[in-house]
Design a protein around this nucleic acid. Sequence first.
DNA 1: CGATTTTATTTGTCTGACATTTAAAAGTCT
DNA 2: AGACTTTTAAATGTCAGACAAATAAAATCG
Lengths: 256, 256
Amino acid sequence: MKIDPQKPADLSAQIAQAIRDAIVSGELIVDERLPSEAELSDQFQVSRPTVREALKRLAAQSLIRTQRGATGGAFVNRLSFEDAHSLQITTSTLLLSMNAVSFDTACEARYALERACAPLSAERRTADQLATMRAEIFRQAQPGLTDEAFCASDVAFHRALVDGAGNPVLSYQLAGAVEAMQPLMNMITFTARSREEIIALHTRLVDAIDAKNGSRAEHTLAELESYTRGLGRDVMATRIKATQGTGKKNGTLKTG
Amino acid sequence: MKIDPQKPADLSAQIAQAIRDAIVSGELIVDERLPSEAELSDQFQVSRPTVREALKRLAAQSLIRTQRGATGGAFVNRLSFEDAHSLQITTSTLLLSMNAVSFDTACEARYALERACAPLSAERRTADQLATMRAEIFRQAQPGLTDEAFCASDVAFHRALVDGAGNPVLSYQLAGAVEAMQPLMNMITFTARSREEIIALHTRLVDAIDAKNGSRAEHTLAELESYTRGLGRDVMATRIKATQGTGKKNGTLKTG
DNA sequence: CGATTTTATTTGTCTGACATTTAAAAGTCT
DNA sequence: AGACTTTTAAATGTCAGACAAATAAAATCG
């Protein structure tokens, strides 16, 4: 674990990278304790604040955890699916909100991924997951639900669908993509009519999953995608009409 | 932007979260300059090193960038697909290496995701992407290629396939999943026979994509998945036999 | 007016110190 | 001897003040 002393700037970044590499390469294993900050300062020939900045960088990625006290220190953290999941959500959410990604593009990606796990979900879903899906459909049918609450329930529904595949790697990837879409979905106004339609499609979807009919589930998802993208287009058209001549921006909902 | 002064520990984490929230909520927009470290120290009533630790946490997630000099400071960074992609790769790689994820599970997830974008890729792939795929197949056929080089080419091949979908969100998600699998793939010894088989499947795959035949591409991917998972099982069986009674570990390649 | 120098601002780094937490070691009492 | 209490040492968390380096704007000079 060495750093280049010739490049004076960004020492903390270099140190963080050196430690990161040591973790990735297996030189440092899970739950192993790193040298104390004082020892690291000596090793890298930098001051303790610099070492601390490096450690905070790693902590931000859940690569290490710190513990105070006599036997404390920084330990290599076992990256859990939960940690990875929440990291991915913040990343994906920001990516979508800061890069003129059209609703259409994000939607296409989301449903493409989701269709991928529909057959697996149809095959393996548990009774519990089916119950969750039906419960969310019931919630979506409640009158007086805000658009945000409707979308949140939508996310929970799809989350259960994804988890049904029984593949944690898939769940981690997909749940991130689905949840990151929520802010974009929240910008859509769901009329009573469109909610009815979505609920009907959700019902057909869970019925297909229940019946272990993967291809029907996939097909229903395709319909749901098409309908959702249509809604997005309508909302966009309305916004463009409403803002014509006013010079107002469309928020983060981009055309294209 | 406030922090809770009652919780004395982890001030830097609290400050980082406060700034992160301000960015996510849109209170701070892209390329906007944050207050200087001195000003932030005043605002949050903490010392400058504490503020700096918070900023480094955000820098680790590519949420801000810093610039020295008179007009320097910390700026809200536009998270690029590239940044997000590299963040996801480190996360996914560590997740797979540190959590007894079986080769089989990871493989299933990868091919499920990849199948999702095969139809889109068949429809939209550019001539350039087709050329890249064929070039990688050619490389894979070279004799004397190490397993690592073979796998790297495999990744490049699938990367081109994914990019063919012409959906940057999908590319970002998929490329992360595919690249994160590489360390696991590297543990497989590819015999001349298995390379031949994989190359044949790759060729059929690119032919299908070339012919804009999405369902055939999807089907070929399913065959590739089945073959790859079979290889993984064989390698595992061999390892178990080889290590029986010796007490040796199987590396990160887990059964089940 | 153009080129150069100065200056002010800001991040990057260092030193040294103190506070807080925590577990182990030492001590004390029964 | 054993259980409880106190002390101590080690580690992170935080602070204050300082200097170095980079950088662009302002001031100066030819």
